[in-house]
Every structure is written in structure tokens, then in C-alpha cells.
Amino acid sequence: MTRFGYTLMTEQAPPRALVRHAHEAEQAGFDFEVMSDHYFPWLDEQGHAPNAWATLGAVTQSTERVELMTYVTCPIMRYHPAVVAQQAATVQLLSEGRFTLGLGAGENLNEHVVGRGWPPVNIRHEMLTEAVEIISALFDGGYVSFTGDHFRVDSAKLWDLPEVRVPIAVAVSGDQSVRRYAPLADAMIAVEPGAELCTEWDRTAREGTRKIAQLPICWDDDRDAAITRAHEQFRWFAGGWKVNAELPGPAGFAAATQFVTKDDVAENIPCGTDPDAVVAAVKPFVDAGFTDIALVQIGGEHQDPFLAAAKERVLPALRA
């Protein structure tokens, strides 16, 4: 059975609000919650970017049942993989075994802040592979030393390891990345309903691993207001990840999406209060073979009406 999640978007809400939303989403009946990990929002209109890991620590205490996940953390520049492993193990302990570490090759938007430039995609994938190997080794316990082409680790050890090993999910975008990461990961992350991704993942990965996707919606009684808000805050999606990963800041995203219209957004994002529209948008992911789908409600100040509707209308429609 497909599991449905809620997205804690750090780009559109301050940390205390995110902690409250996490609690309310659990009460609404979501199966899991994912949190983005950004240093910048994509667009100035979104207006926020608190630290995901500090916020996750608080979320572990405001929730009791839902699984938690980063969607996604980049462990190749802004964070060293040994530090990511320590953070993930700590969140797993705080959540009592409810955490999955979602990893990806990152975006220039967030990683440029450490002043190391932005490598080409093939180098980023090499770095991510080494990072996953380091993190996995640290999760195994004991001292870890590692010398690779991109990272060194000198006698690192996680002194507080959870009894439940932290599962690792990795974001993929095509056959090459699936073949690279499926043998290393416990779950797949993708943002498009590509059946070929799921088929290749199942062919390569361990049996029964999860395949996790994400879908933006804009719930509002006023459909025109929903479309306007989605256009203001989420038109960045139109560039696709191959472009989005390279843009250096919100001004770049604003320039790259200046010709995206409200009609373009309305065609791609369910706007309004029709649960059937959400079901229709989710269906391609289910048909493709995804096991978990996290919804994004666009607009940090518009979570409460959506969460109320999710409990009464959206989740029942999806599960039916």
C-alpha cells in the first residue's frame, strides 16, 4: 500500500512554525514527514531557510509516530560526510528509530556558500558515492579511516550509535545514478514519475526497498489565489533539476523563471480544494511504482487549512 507523507519546507516557514506543523501533520494522519535542507530559498518570495538539523531535533520531540527524513541533505561540500553521519545518528536516537537519511548531490544554490566553487555533475556524483561509503562505514560502528579522491577521514567514530541503523535513501535522476547508488542505498528518491527509474532500481537494489517521491500542491478555497501563490513561490520547478542544480541564488531562479506563466503552474500543480485533483496528480507516481509520496503544501502561512483538509478529505481520498 502506498504511504503518504508531509513536507516540512524550510524554505517557506520559520523553525518554530515547522515544529508545530510537524505535530499537526502527525495528528492529521500522515505516515511520514520529510524536511528540506537548504541554506537559501529558491525564490525571495519563499523567505526562509532555517537550519534543518536543529529543527529536526525539535521535531523528534513534537512527534511520536511518524517517520522522519531529510529530503535531501547534500554531504559533499557544506557538510562533511562524517558530520552528516553524526547528525543522522543523533536524530535517530532522538526519534527512537524513526529517521531515514535522504542524500543527494546538491545544488549550487546552497553549497556555494562555503566558497569552494561548484563542481561538474560527474564530480559531484563521485563525491556523493564516497560520502555514502563513509557514512555507511560510520554507521557500522568502530573507527573509520578513509582516503578517496575527494574525502579523507582520520580515525572517526560515532560514540552514540542507535540500535536501529539509520536507513540511507539517495536521490537519482536516471539509469546511471540508479546503477551507481542502488547497491549502496536502502531507498530511492526521485521527483518525476519515471517508471523506468523504479524498474531499474528494483532490478539493481535490495528487494523491497522504498521508492520515495514528492508532489507540490496549493490548497486554498480561492483557486485563483492558490494559482497566484504557487506561481510566486514554486515557479522554480519549471527549470528541471539539471538546470536548478546549477543556479547560484534566488536572483538566478527569478531570472530563469521570468517567463513561466500562471497557466504553466496551474497545469502542473493541483490548485484549489479538489481532492480528486490531488489523486490524479499522485496516480502517475503510484503507477510508476513509487511506494511513498510526500505532499508539499505551498505557502508557509497556509498549512493549517491544508492539514485540516488532509485529515478529513485528502488522505481518505488518496487511500481509497
Rank of each mutant, 00 (worst) to 15 (best):
A187L: 01
M188T: 01
M188E: 02
I189M: 14
I189T: 05
I189K: 09
A190P: 06
A190W: 03
A190E: 05
E192P: 04
E192K: 08
E192S: 12
E192M: 10
P193V: 00
G194D: 02
G194L: 02
G194K: 01
G194A: 03
E196H: 13
L197E: 00
C198G: 01
T199W: 02
T199M: 03
T199D: 09
T199L: 00
E200F: 02
W201L: 03
D202H: 03
R203Q: 08
A205E: 01
E207Y: 07
G208F: 03
G208L: 04
G208M: 06
G208T: 03
T209M: 04
R210E: 03
K211Y: 01
K211G: 01
I212Q: 02
I212P: 02
A213V: 10
Q214D: 06
Q214T: 15
L215V: 12
I217E: 13
I217A: 15
C218G: 13
W219V: 05
D220R: 03
D221S: 09
D222P: 11
D222T: 09
D222N: 11
R223T: 15
R223S: 12
R223N: 11
A225Q: 04
I227W: 12
I227R: 15
I227M: 13
R229L: 14
H231L: 14
E232Y: 04
Q233E: 08
Q233F: 08
F234Q: 15
F234I: 12
F234V: 11
F234R: 11
R235I: 01
W236P: 03
W236N: 07
F237E: 13
A238T: 13
A238V: 09
G239C: 14
W241Y: 04
W241C: 01
W241V: 06
K242I: 00
K242T: 05
K242N: 06
V243A: 15
V243Q: 12
V243L: 14
V243Y: 08
A245C: 09
A245K: 06
E246Q: 14
E246K: 15
L247G: 09
L247P: 08
L247S: 00
G249S: 11
G249C: 10
P250M: 03
P250A: 10
A251T: 11
A251P: 04
A251L: 07
F253H: 07
F253V: 04
A254C: 02
A255T: 06
A255H: 04
T257N: 09
T257S: 05
T257A: 06
T257P: 05
Q258T: 07
Q258C: 06
Q258R: 10
Q258H: 09
Q258E: 11
F259G: 12
V260F: 10
V260E: 05
V260C: 09
V260I: 15
K262F: 09
D263P: 13
D263K: 12
D263I: 03
D264G: 07
D264R: 12
D264K: 13
D264I: 12
V265D: 12
A266F: 13
E267M: 03
E267D: 11
E267W: 00
N268I: 05
N268C: 06
N268S: 14
I269R: 15
I269S: 14
P270A: 07
P270K: 14
P270H: 13
P270F: 11
C271W: 06
G272W: 04
G272E: 00
T273Y: 01
T273N: 03
D274N: 12
D274P: 08
